[in-house]
Structures are given as structure tokens and as C-alpha cells.
Amino acid sequence: MNCPQFQDLLFEYLEGSLAPAIRDSADAHLSSCPACRQAVRQQTQIARSFSRGFQQAAQTLALRPDIQRRVLAALQAEPVPPPGQAGVLAWWQRLVWPVAITAALLLGTALMTGVPFSSRVSVIPPVRLARRDAPAPTPVSIRLSYCVPTYTFRQNGNTVIDSLTCNPRVVDQTIWLSSK
């Protein structure tokens, strides 16, 4: 481990959350690096100072006695959700806006292009039914490009992060046309 690598892990080193192998490597680096030992001492001092300072700054505060009463009063004004429904309802409530936005985007795309989800058609020749006495049909290649919207959700702690991605797809097809 070198100095930049150690500095990058300094906070984790101080909080003791490094994996044992990385911790050993960090200890080995510290034993031979006075600058990083100094950084550890300094950060330890800073942490102690902030911790003590914050505790002192807030230690005289006391919760107002009426807060508990106010909270209870606010709760009594709320209807109790039926058991078993609260979680499901909350889950759906969280989806309302993302689903609404997706629907609006899809609708907008459909209205702008005229064809839902298809963005471009490079060749669309008029297709005619082949007659029995007509010459052999000729092949025509067409390329169809379109976008597939994908809406994903992931949870990061107490936050639900949603993202909309558009995956382009290209399809090559051959259709057979008969000439006049």
C-alpha cells in the first residue's frame, strides 16, 4: 500500500471497518510512513474535537414537554390504516409518480412518431400482392430501428432511485415484391 491508497482509506481505517487483510496492509504501510502516521494522529484529533464540540453545543437542549402531546393529537386526527394494507398501499404510492411520468413519456413518443415505440423506418416500399402471371418477386431489404424503453427501480438505503433508459434496436428484414 502506498500513501495515496492509505489516504483514500483513512476514514475506514479510523472507524475500524477495513477487511483484516487490508487493515494489515495499512498497518504495514503506517509502520514505515511518518507522514501517514501524522495524518492518522491529526484525523483522530479532529474527530475528537468535533465530537466533543458538537456534544457541548447541544447538550443543554431539552425536548419541549408539549411535543409528545402534540404528536399524539396529530396521530389521533389520522385514520388508522387497515392492518396489512399499509405496506402495500405505501409501495404503490411510491410508484405513482414514476409510472405516471413513464406513461406520459411513452404517450408523447407515440404521438410524435405516429407509431408507438418505432422511431424510424428506412425503407417502406408499397407492398403489393403478387399475381399468378407476374414475374418472380424481387427481394427488398428493410431496416427497422426503434427504441425499447426500460424503467428500473433500485433501493439505496431509504431512497428509491428510478431510471428510464432507451435501448436502441435494429432489425433487418427482407420482403418480396413483385413488379408490374
Binding site: L61, A62, L63, Q68
Partner: peptide
């Protein structure tokens, strides 16, 4: 979840002070 006032009281008593200090900072 069942709006038990005793539970509300317990939560306010156990977490209120610490939350207040954090809120002040």
C-alpha cells in the same frame, strides 16, 4: 402501527432528545 399511545410515548422519550440535538446542529 396500532397507534398505541404508550408506544408513541416510549419512542418520543427514547429518541426525542437525541433527534433534537441533531436537528439543532
Amino acid at each position: 402501527r396500532s397507534r398505541d399511545p404508550a408506544a408513541v410515548q416510549e419512542l418520543v422519550e427514547t429518541c426525542g432528545q437525541r433527534l433534537l440535538r441533531s436537528a439543532f446542529l
